[in-house]
Amino acid sequence: MTDSVARPSAARAAPAGDGTDEAARPVAIVEKRWLGLTVETWQRILAPLAIGVIVLGLWEFIVRQAGIPHYILPGPLLIFRTLIADWGTLSGSLWITLQITGMALLAAVIVGGLLSILFTQSKWLELSLFPYAIILQVTPIVAIAPLIIIWVDDTLLSLLICAWIVAFFPILSNTILGINSADHNLVNLFQLYGASRWQTLIYLRLPAALPYFLGGLRISGGLALIGAVVAEFVAGSGGTASGLAFRILEAGYQLKIPRMFAALVMVSMSGIAIFLVLSLVSHLLLRRWHESAMRREN
């Protein structure tokens, strides 16, 4: 519940019933705020946080009680200490993984965006090329990654290509859907005023496609990270530049399980951060006009 409803309490004196008492007042809806956030926002933050704390506490308790050795399952406190102690090595790898993810996502936005415009402008292009985009999407990246790593000399570039292949399809398919779902009457209106194809694209189809594109972008952000990690697992070594996946593999070989978990935590946190940033971007771009970014009373 977001709203608290102001009502007279039952403990009060009996209402006069003449239209002048408390009960006759219109029901006021007041949104209470603590530290600038509404009750709903606090619930959104606190409820998952509470579950997290409980699970972590239980985990730590079980590990200690059962005396599970740390090379089988480290407790959360040890993982946290390892994260601090190994921050020097791990943060360098995090940076590399984030770079690959970021560049792959950027490439996905550019290629996916341009291809979707091309596909919607030319039926033949879409008919002849879209099936291949689907093939690229449905073939597991783990299966193609070894080939790409063999063909492309530069490891960083091969990882980038793998991450890009995974990330670009949601942007492509969503943006195509968006460009094609512009209001039919608005399309007619543009036709009526003799708008060129270019004008219709710029003033109508691209703005109409924006919410769809942003939906695809949020999916692609997570996929780019997954693609980057998976490709590095397959590559087995990042050469001079080693990302988080390589740290996980390396720690596994050396039975440094707490470090493995620490790197894993960093991958998850990166994924969450990417999702939050892209959600914020989406909200900022759509808040003035789109249904998804609106708060309604009812």
């Binding site: 209001d183 009457n185 703005p207 109409a208 006009w289």
Partner: peptide
């Protein structure tokens, strides 16, 4: 048109 047919982003 029968609907206002406005661009919601404008």
């Amino acid at each position: 048109f029968q609907e206002p047919t406005l661009m919601p982003w404008a």
